[in-house]
């Protein structure tokens, strides 16, 4: 999937993955996509929960060797 921006948040733990993601999304235009890489298992439920309340959409997510990837479309 083509992302407009990639955020590498590997190694960061809660709350930083969401804090950084929010900052990165703020810099995008509505409809653009952010690709997030994180190793924090707490992000698995927090990223979708945050996206929902903030009005963004998680369009895809995957796991690869302990790295969780999310593609988030700005609302």
């Amino acid at each position: 999937m083509n992302a407009d921006k990639v955020l590498d948040a590997r190694g960061l733990s809660c709350p930083m993955p969401v804090v950084r993601t929010k900052k990165a999304i703020d810099e995008l235009k509505p409809g653009q996509i952010l690709e997030l890489h994180t190793t924090d298992s707490g992000a698995l439920s927090d990223i979708p929960a945050w996206a929902k309340t903030a009005g963004h959409r998680v369009i895809e997510q995957s796991e690869d060797n302990g790295v969780y990837k999310f593609w988030i479309q700005k609302g």
């Binding site: 709350p15 969401v18 804090v19 929010k22 927090d46 929960a49 945050w50 309340t53 903030a54």
Partner: peptide
Amino acid sequence: NVESINIPYFDLI
């Protein structure tokens, strides 16, 4: 005697 409320941290960034 515990009162609790929930506001996720990501709503307080």
